[in-house]
Simulated scan of single mutants.
Amino acid sequence: MNCTTTHWTNKYQMIFVPFTAIDHHKKSVTVGAGLLSNETIESYCWLLKAFLKAHGKQPTIVLTDQDPAIKQAVQLVTGDLIKNTDFRKRFNKLVWDMFK
């Protein structure tokens, strides 16, 4: 049990935003993270733009929770990425190929 993380998160009221990717071994790897003082569209846009600037390319798939601010920020920053109609097929292939 790790109470320290919860303690520090609550003490400073910061939102931890991890960026996770799948490596060539089909393992989850944290490739970046950010701390935000609030959960606004502007904050998420700033963080996403900084992440994209550091990595130089857009991701092919973005998965988030149901927070409306994240959803709007992803759509604003990445454009049509969130409207990808092929998402379900690609995501299912990614998930099920990992178990082969």
Rank of each mutant, 00 (worst) to 15 (best):
F16I: 09
K71D: 08
I22M: 09
A73N: 03
P18I: 06
D86M: 14
Q13W: 02
F16P: 12
V17K: 02
H55G: 06
M14V: 15
W8I: 14
P68F: 01
D97A: 09
N10Y: 08
F51T: 01
A50T: 13
A54H: 08
V77I: 13
I70W: 01
V17S: 09
M1W: 08
K89Y: 13
K26W: 00
H55S: 09
K53A: 15
K11N: 10
V17I: 10
M14W: 06
D97T: 14
N10M: 09
L35W: 03
P18L: 04
C3M: 08
W96C: 12
H25T: 09
N10I: 07
L47S: 02
T4G: 08
W46Y: 04
H24Y: 12
D86H: 12
Q72T: 14
N92P: 05
Q72S: 13
A50Q: 12
N92A: 14
N84F: 08
D65Q: 03
Q75Y: 04
A21Q: 00
E42W: 03
K11S: 12
T9M: 10
V95K: 09
A69G: 01
N2R: 09
V77N: 06
I22W: 04
V29C: 09
S43I: 00
N92K: 11
H7L: 11
A21L: 01
G34K: 00
D80R: 13
K89G: 07
I82F: 10
T4E: 11
N84K: 04
N10V: 10
P59I: 02
Y12S: 05
V62H: 00
T64Q: 05
G56Q: 09
F99R: 14
F19C: 13
T30L: 10
Y12K: 05
V17H: 06
Q72N: 14
G34M: 06
T30H: 07
K100F: 12
Q13C: 10
L52M: 07
L35Y: 11
M98P: 05
L36Q: 02
C45Q: 14
K26S: 04
D80H: 15
F99N: 13
I41A: 04
L47K: 00
P68D: 03
K27C: 13
G56V: 04
T5E: 08
L63S: 02
H7M: 09
V74Y: 03
A69M: 00
N10A: 15
I15M: 05
D23M: 01
I22Q: 14
M1P: 12
I15Q: 09
D23Y: 00
P59Y: 00
A21T: 02
K100Y: 08
M98K: 10
A69C: 01
R88G: 06
K11D: 12
W8K: 15
K57V: 06
I61K: 04
L81D: 14
